[in-house]
Every structure is written in structure tokens, then in C-alpha cells.
Design a protein around this nucleic acid. Structure first.
Lengths: 112, 112
DNA sequence: CTTGACACCTTGTTTTTCTAGGTATAGGAT
DNA sequence: ATCCTATACCTAGAAAAACAAGGTGTCAAG
């Protein structure tokens, strides 16, 4: 799944890793890769604009820090971000359950 | 979820309902609504182009029929469509499991 | 004879994701 | 010294998907 196919759920994933503690973008990519068991290996060109989007939406705040000569922009979940995460989690649960019902549909009723 | 947010999983859903038996587009919309318990209520402008896409990809074939003065284009899953469905199902399983690991991640280890 | 359900369609907009570049530092290998 | 890799950020443009909003036409009920 390294290629395409994230499909609109990136915000949820990003908010979820940020809820685990403040992180900079590069670290978020690694966290996503690790926590998903290598399923998500997102290109920077996907993640950085998404973080900017989330910050503009008020779900994250950022501040620049300098660690060993390297500048980092560290993001932190806001209150609004936390509640957005809750809503997105609920939406995901509903969505994935619905997909499960559709694709797992028993073609014939189980013979009792 | 009537609003937005189908996010690239429409092909899977459509192939799944077609696997249950040949259907025309309008019937597919209803099947999706019912099987998802009203979660998916897709606009025609979303579904019809998707069916055309799937036919062009060789996953569906269609034929025109006339039922009580109304013309219908009935779609049927092809062999390639059946195997595509299998792959998409597997992709979905992997994807949803990965999302679950990321968003359900235990922030702190459960105290035993 | 109008309304609503049925049944199909397309055009254009928006949003998201990705590709493909670019910049710059640190540290290890050559 | 120089190169490579990993770290760490960024943007511009392309492609795709989902949708909104329009359109056509039939049939049945009121």
C-alpha cells in the first residue's frame, strides 16, 4: 500500500498520531509507518501539506525548534483538534462497519 | 454520511453488490443504501460514472433491457471483476486493520 | 395534468493525494 | 576532501475521485 490509496482518512491518522504526543512531520511519517506495521508509508509531499491544512483548520498548532542543527516544526493537537479526532473516529467506525456489512453480506441466509 | 466521504472505496462497494447478482445502476444505489443500513446514500452523479469506469476497466459488462417502458442498463460482474473484488477485499482488510492499529493505539500500556 | 418515483446521463468544481522536483544539515564511508 | 544517506523541511503541478447541479424521458397516482 506504499503507493496510492489513503483516500481521505489521512486527517484521522495524523490527528491520531499527534494525540499520542507532539511530533514533527517527519516523525509523524515514521510513527504512521510503525504503528501500521509498514502498511502506511506516506510520501512527504502528502503529509506536509496535510499538516498545513490541519493547522489552518485549527486542529494543530506548530512551533519551530532546533535540534542538533536541524530545524523542526513540531505540531501539537489543539482542543478543537482533539474533538475533531473524536468525531473522525466515530465517523470511521460507522464507515468501516458499513463497508463490512456491504462487502461481507451473506449471499444466502445461513442454513440453521 | 449522506454528504461526502466515500473516498476511493466505491469500486469495492459496487463490485460487492454486483457479486450478489446483476443489477442496474439505480438498483445498485438502493442495494448499497439497504445493505449499509442507510449509511451510504449515494448520489447518481457519483454512481453512474463509477459504473462506467468499472465497465471500461473490464470488471463489469452491461446490456440494455426494457422493463415496463423503462430502459435499464443492467450490469454484470465479469471474471476479471470477480478477481478484482477479491483483491479489493483483501486490500480493504489490510487497510482497515492498519487504520485500527493507528487510531486505536493504546497511549499507555494497559495496567495489568 | 401535475407530482413523484423510476432510470439514465454529463459538465464543471472541489478536494485529496501523489510525483517530482527543490533546499539544507549531520554523520559516516570512501 | 567528497560522497552518500538519513534527517527535515517545502512547493508546484498532475491526476483522480466524489459531488452538485443540471438535463432527458417514462410511468402511475392523484
Amino acid at each position: 500500500m506504499s503507493g496510492q490509496a489513503l483516500k481521505g482518512h489521512l486527517d484521522l491518522l495524523l490527528l491520531a498520531v499527534m494525540a499520542d504526543g507532539p511530533k514533527h512531520g517527519y516523525a509523524a511519517i515514521e510513527a504512521l509507518r510503525e504503528r501500521s506495521d509498514e502498511v502506511f508509508d506516506l510520501p512527504e509531499g502528502t503529509v506536509y501539506p496535510a499538516l498545513h491544512r490541519l493547522e489552518k483548520a485549527g486542529y494543530l498548532t506548530s512551533e519551530w525548534t532546533e535540534v542538533q542543527g536541524r530545524r523542526r516544526r513540531t505540531y501539537r493537537l489543539t482542543k478543537r483538534g482533539t474533538s475533531a479526532l473524536g468525531e473522525e473516529r466515530a465517523t470511521w467506525d460507522q464507515f468501516s462497519a458499513a463497508v463490512g456489512r456491504v462487502i461481507g453480506g451473506t449471499p444466502w441466509p445461513a442454513t440453521p
